[in-house]
Amino acid sequence: MAKTLVQEFTKGLWAEIPPFRLVLGLCPTLAITNTLENAYGMGVAVTFVLTFSNILISALRKIIPPKVRIVAFIVVIATFVIVVELVMQAYTYALFLKLGIFIPLIVVNCIPMGRAEAFASKNGMVRSALDGLGLGLGYTIALSVLATFRQVIATGAITIYETPISLFGPAFEPFRFLVEAPGAFICLGLMLGLMNILGKK
């Protein structure tokens, strides 16, 4: 069943949206979705790593010996992660401080590794690029939705860039629980349930 190029891109946005459908990359999904800014910052970082590692691994797929493919994938992915890390340090240091350890941890995030093994090592460069871009964008959207939900209900404010914007005025009673760790699990669970209900035919 061959997919068209458009389908290759759009599958990441709904049918295979990473945290909700593939249920991959959950560690950052739970840890950094406390503000919207963190969520899309992380999403953009993952999208970058995923797209470029997919392209490069796809380009090298015929010359990487199968026995050492995982090592080669990790080197490629780690390289792009460090690129992201350095660029973030140089230009968006405040965001880098907040995302902290989760940026270097993209190396062991299942999404880039999983796509390299399951997709990029078997498909051409254009398809791999679209696959990476689509899944990355899906991941960004998923994190942003989750973060918006958590941040708005927990604090009554939303952080689009650097400073939180208050939405409901002083009468709002914050539900702090949702920005704590257990709140993250509950939100993710609700989201997964919702996705399953919507996806049911």
Binding site: L60, V68, V75, L86, Q89
Partner: peptide, 27 residues
Amino acid sequence: MVVVLTGISLASGGLLASLRENTQERI
């Protein structure tokens, strides 16, 4: 195997070294 892995690592190292060089001051 040795040649391919060495090649990938060298390219990676070279890229990161030059990027570090260029962003050091700003960081």
